[in-house]
Design a protein around this nucleic acid. Sequence first.
DNA 1: TGTGATGTATAAGTCTGACTTTTTGTTTCC
DNA 2: GGAAACAAAAAGTCAGACTTATACATCACA
Lengths: 233, 233
Amino acid sequence: MSTPGRGLHGRVLDSLGPAITAGEYPPGSILRTDELAQHFEVSRSVMREAVRVLESMHLVESRRRVGVTVRPKSEWNVYDPQVIRWRLAGADRPHQLRSLTVLRSAIEPAAAGLAARHATAEQCAELTECALGMVAHSRGHRLAEYLFHDVAFHRVILTASGNEMFARLGDVVAEVLTGRTQHEVMFEDPDPAAVTLHVRVAEAVRARDAVRAEELTRQITVGALQELDILAP
Amino acid sequence: MSTPGRGLHGRVLDSLGPAITAGEYPPGSILRTDELAQHFEVSRSVMREAVRVLESMHLVESRRRVGVTVRPKSEWNVYDPQVIRWRLAGADRPHQLRSLTVLRSAIEPAAAGLAARHATAEQCAELTECALGMVAHSRGHRLAEYLFHDVAFHRVILTASGNEMFARLGDVVAEVLTGRTQHEVMFEDPDPAAVTLHVRVAEAVRARDAVRAEELTRQITVGALQELDILAP
DNA sequence: TGTGATGTATAAGTCTGACTTTTTGTTTCC
DNA sequence: GGAAACAAAAAGTCAGACTTATACATCACA
């Protein structure tokens, strides 16, 4: 997914990023560019580029005569899609998944309300199509196809809200939904109630009923939260 | 604010970042590292580091034999504090301010609800202190002091929610509130109703009344949205 | 003994030049 | 007209020399 191996510095990041976000180098740890460059068998310039990227994510801080120090978790740019992906791939995946689901439950109802006001006719059609796709694949262990339409549905909602900040959370939601299907338990077919809710949200948006779209979406996110509570109470 | 002039590459970013986010180089524009390096009078290595950072923000994409192309706005990492700052300093400041205020109105009520459940005794005390500070400076054009306590109040709420994603929006909210006071109109003393609402939110959190804290915070954010509508309908 | 000035080692920061690799666009040839 | 070979362009990589800021230790002086 995304951009794998865009140069040497990218491969260094794919290795160092997850290590830092996983807490392998605890906050306050001091790294030295030269040592890192040796360890990853790259030149200093490549290593410096990688460090610059980590610095822009507020994962590390580079200071003269000191080295590259790992910053406390509370300062990380946790909205950076790359950071999110690293953390979801690491040990605190459950914790991260919960944080993001709580975020979803705040954002998506509001987005749905706005979508009901601003969605274009085309977006309404897409929404209905996605919902129907979910229905069509909600039985018989067609999880991959179901997920595809589920992700598309939420992306359309977020985009149709007309708010760029909401729209950019599409990747995050996709990551959460995908993660839930792939790594977490999802033995059985999706909850029929959830499927129905999606269909009704699509209807509400098409009917320009902002209040109903918001409330129904809230029910979807509440369901997602409950699902987490069942898995890790 | 933040980290001004952390090296040569930082100064290049301070110049190039705002230019790109302001649309000075429209999406699809092609820049060349060597030319940029000449233009900014820095070495290629410094320029490359700057480009790497812009790349990690998804502002540009670097491809061999092509150059550094500016990505469409829809792909930018709009949650990156640096990007937010650049955009707030640029021409589409009003648009950005509106997006962020809508985001606030989705996040903060939810955060307040969680804060009512999870806030420590110390955080409750801080909250009350902030609210009282707002009251104390709500008259007589003491805008700077009022702002200080306002920002602190919202930071505590977001932190006390216990959700790291919410907590990291503290800087964004601070930026919005500061921007409102500094650049936008705020001739008169703050709205007394808003001040009262903050006091009542503090009370609700202390009383562990999540529903009330959420509802009162919603009223604060609704007020913020209305304020924007009055300024730019 | 404490405090301020001085010195020094260290690691990041910067620059330069040469070389490699990928990719695009053209040209050639069947 | 299409495929294959070619050439040029720009990013990517590397190595080495030099600069600069700064933490820390040392020493002098009060």
